[in-house]
Write a protein that binds this DNA or RNA. Structure first.
Lengths: 117, 117
DNA sequence: CCTATGTATTGACAAACATGATTTCAATAG
DNA sequence: CTATTGAAATCATGTTTGTCAATACATAGG
């Protein structure tokens, strides 16, 4: 797992040699990085982060009509952000009649959280 | 801190009334969300996430010349990503002669990590 | 000096993104 | 049925992003 890079003091190359040994980054790490980056990207917008924050604090399902007035944004824009979060697997939604309720999928944040700490 | 949204079953509005009570999102939370989203945004690219990953695993300073061959990218592109990470306050850099060494600033990830868990 | 090397910046460009206006869809009430 | 309402999708637009080629900058060695 750990990439073993050398941190030896460098000297100017003898004009031809490569600077460093080419280090191969393991594919599994790349895939994990891609997964985590997808989550991070979805959280990388203040609105979406606050959406997740609100949803998490309620630990239940929240109606879109309650989320929209939290922000100075149009309903379609909030819907757009919720879609992004859905596509990233961070939230799920459920329709009950006219209303749509959103909730956080906690497992979706676990790998990221583990990597971060 | 906790936003107290009601989750009562909804009924169709009497044509005029707003759907829900306007809920005020506290400003302090907005600022925190903005800070965390900045970090998340910077981590929201697979390359940058791997860069941070490598730097963290080494818990020391790593030469750019060792980072570039990890990716199938040009040196300017890697430099660009490192700059993004620097601007987000996630990494710092130090020049020693020709070489530039990068390192993670652990505190930069603390607030995000705390929020996530 | 001059040349070579490691790194950063600039310019350009396609792709992705955030946003709002408008439209579409689904479901409820009458 | 029709009208209305909540939510999602579509369209258009201006902005940001990731990438590389080319260039600039700084430093080390001769």
């Amino acid at each position: 797992m750990a990439v073993d890079l050398e941190l030896a003091p460098k000297t100017k190359r003898p004009a031809g040699e490569p600077c460093c040994e080419p280090v191969v980054y393991p594919d599994v790490a790349r895939e994990q990085a891609a997964r985590i980056a997808t989550i991070a990207k979805a959280l990388g917008d203040p609105i979406r982060l606050q959406l997740v924050d609100v949803l998490r604090k309620h630990a239940g399902k929240v109606c879109v009509c309650e989320l929209v007035p939290l922000f100075d944004l149009s309903q379609p824009t909030v819907s757009h952000h919720l879609k992004k979060l859905r596509e990233a697997g961070i939230v799920g939604s459920e329709r009950r009649g006219l209303w749509a309720y959103y909730y956080v999928i906690p497992e979706s944040l676990e790998e990221f959280s583990a990597w971060l700490s």
